[in-house]
Amino acid sequence: MPDDTMTTSRKASALAAFKDMPREPGVPKPDPILVVDKVVRRFGGLTAVDVDHVEIQRGSITALIGPNGAGKTTFFNQLTGFDTADAGAWTFNGRAMNGVPAHKVARNGMVRTFQLTKALSRLTVLENMRLGAQKQKGESFWRAMIPAFWRGQEDEITERAEELLVRFKLDAKREDFAGSLSGGQRKLLEMARALMVEPELVMLDEPMAGVNPALTQSLLGHVKDLREQGMTVLFVEHDMDMVRDISDWVIVMAQGTVIAEGPPSTIMSDERVIDAYLGAHHDAPLSDTELESQLHEAEAALEAEIEEETQK
């Protein structure tokens, strides 16, 4: 665990970067790791994603929120190469990433997890972890047959995997099949496995979905930990308590577009966000004259009804 001064400094520097930043969608950040421009994804007649411009600040925890069907996961899929955008461009660390296949996106240091956890069930927890390591010599066909080529590297990978498992409190499960873990443990394993890739940007798709409350705190701690270790985190989440607790900046999507950005403390009181979640003018007060005329209408209707009844 990093000491407190470190924690505060990382968080403080992230917050300082966002201080006094305008709340407009697509606002430029001082040091963006990911810059997205005009990404469009259509499914037939439906435009699922139409993001004009978004920047993700390096070294921060950014939340991506929005009502159901806002296109958050689809947006994730475009950025990570799991789906092909119809138009648009984005750069990661200044390198163009549109059209790059998913595995190369990951190799470049942009690693994602999935909303529905993808534990590799019939592999042990430790094998799941080892798989995440990059540039493995033993993963080439010819060298794989001669253990001498990869044994040393495998030991290093195992050591790193075990350190991570201890951190994520999964070390007791190392020899169990990943399929035997609980839902929350699978989320932990997936996050730990993503860290084996040694990413710069970690993209978490609903990390809290289906996790029991006892594990939530530990998962939150791990996400915060990622920032302390110098990684950037972008995550999709529905749980507003979690968003308020750990994020430095919030991007709000609705109907495929980014409608607002802002700090977590005030974003939920932003009118555009409330409109997106609850519908426009849902709680706009009626004016006095409107109220009066409505009352008169109701009265007249009642009187007419009474008259009708008595005349029978």
């Binding site: 990570t80 799991f82 296949p101 998913a102 595995h103 190369k104 990951a106 190799r107 690693v111 994602r112 997890t113 999935f114 993808k118 534990a119 590799l120 069930s121 019939r122 592999l123 094998e127 799941n128 080892r130 798989l131 995440g132 990059q134 493995q136 010599k137 033993g138 993963e139 080439s140 066909f141 794989a144 047959m145 253990p147 990869w150 495998e154 997936e190 496995r193 993503a194 084996m196 890739v197």
Partner: peptide, 24 residues
């Protein structure tokens, strides 16, 4: 070997393997 590990992982879920930087 690690090569076989990738194969077995593809059997379980190839998207997960792709997300970990392997050319499935």
């Amino acid at each position: 070997s690690p090569w076989g590990r990738v194969l077995k992982a593809i059997r379980e879920d190839e998207d997960a393997v792709r997300a970990l930087g392997k050319n499935v």
